[in-house]
């Protein structure tokens, strides 16, 4: 296969499995985001790919060649670390040329390549600037340029934007995505920021408890979470305890609800997941079914949208409505929420 392949990659620290049989194929030129909460094993997987951790078992293949036991220095994957790890004793140009110097590239070619890379990351002419004289965003760009200097087959980034303020982070995310698309380099980014993953990745790999919980295009992960963990972690979700009646129906309390497809057998306990933007609020029952009656327990007018909660069957159902569609109800008012069948997904509890 042309690209990177992880086969049953496992890393154990004593009894703790930091990565648990992780298998994934990443085609050449794809941008993949490993997304998950702290301690889910995403950084461990990235470090194994880089060669900085030795897998307990499993294999890593690059373009079909097994590189599991190849040293990090031999792989020469470009990596941007969370702390950026720039060398403070070297200036910008020397930092970028570090890998080239190690490979014996002559001074003239090094100089050219440094200039090219500084152009690429929009820092032309900063070769002689000391690292301590750079702003946060400039350091970020230098770290990216340094990692790309050796034209790596795989580009790895370990939460590189976590220390930046929101505006600069978004700017850097856009720049990195544009750069990756231009260079068509296989890129793996580790993040706990779902917005970052959603906006940048071709494929999101959601990790939890050392395992891949789900992987696929961002929209499909958002729209069709594979399990309760993914539904809970990616975006906001209403997770309602239900009982399966048959292949098309579940009951929430005493209310039967039609769903797209169920899992499990009749009578089994399950979780119904529905995104807040799919919840429709009405003052009176519409008569079309799939409605739950309740009392408005919270209303927050955010300007661009209205966020509301309706207490139904002992749980709050969260929804959002555009200001145009808002019913104008107040706290304590009786209301109905409609849960469209095509937006309801039944997950194992």
């Amino acid at each position: 296969m042309f690209g990177l392949e992880l086969r049953d990659l496992t890393k154990a620290y004593g009894d703790h499995l930091a990565a648990d049989h992780v298998s994934l194929s990443i085609p050449h030129g794809e941008f993949v985001c490993f997304l998950g909460p702290s301690g889910c094993g995403k950084t461990t997987v990235l470090r194994m790919i880089a060669g900085l951790e030795t897998p307990t078992s499993g294999a890593i293949l690059l373009n079909g060649k097994d590189i599991t036991h190849q040293a990090a220095s031999g792989r020469q994957f470009g990596m941007v670390f969370q702390s950026l790890a720039l060398f403070p004793h070297l200036n910008v140009g020397e930092n970028i040329a570090f890998a080239l110097r190690l490979r014996g590239v002559d001074a003239g070619r090094r100089k050219e390549r440094v200039a090219e890379l500084l152009e690429l990351v929009r820092l032309p002419g900063l070769q002689t600037r000391a690292i301590s004289q750079l702003s946060g965003g400039q350091r970020q760009r230098v770290a990216i340029a340094r990692a790309l200097a050796q034209e790596p087959p795989v580009f790895l980034l370990d939460e590189p934007f976590s220390a930046l303020d929101a505006k600069l982070r978004e700017e850097m995310q856009n720049e990195l995505r544009a750069l990756q698309q231009r260079l068509k380099i296989t890129t793996i980014l580790v993040t706990h920021d779902q917005r970052e993953a959603m906006t940048m990745a071709d494929t999101i790999v959601v990790m939890g408890e050392g395992k891949i919980q789900q992987h696929g295009p961002p929209v499909s992960i958002y729209k069709r979470p594979a399990n309760r963990f993914v539904a809970d972690f990616i975006g906001a979700s209403n997770l309602l305890p239900v009982q399966i009646l048959d292949g098309q129906t579940v009951t929430y309390g005493a209310t039967p609800l039609r769903v797209g497809a169920t899992c499990g057998v009749g009578g089994a306990a399950a979780t119904l997941a529905i995104r807040p933007e799919d919840v429709v609020i009405t003052r009176t029952a519409g008569g079309g079914g799939n409605e739950v009656a309740g009392t408005l327990s919270q209303v927050r007018d955010m300007g661009a949208y209205v966020e509301f909660r309706v207490a139904c069957e002992g749980l709050d159902i969260l929804g959002v409505a555009s200001p145009r569609d808002w019913i104008g109800a107040s706290l304590g008012d009786h209301a109905h929420v409609r849960l469209p069948a095509e937006s309801c997904q039944v997950l194992a509890r």
Binding site: A50, G51, Q82, F87, R146
Partner: peptide, 29 residues
């Protein structure tokens, strides 16, 4: 000393010896 600095040198092709001589030693001058 941030271990990521040494790891960065390793990912760029530096051996343990050259990481020590080219990164650790100059940083601790």
């Amino acid at each position: 000393l941030d271990p990521e600095v040494e790891q960065a040198a390793t990912t760029m092709g530096a051996s343990r010896l050259s990481t020590f001589t080219r990164v650790v030693l100059p940083m601790m001058r």
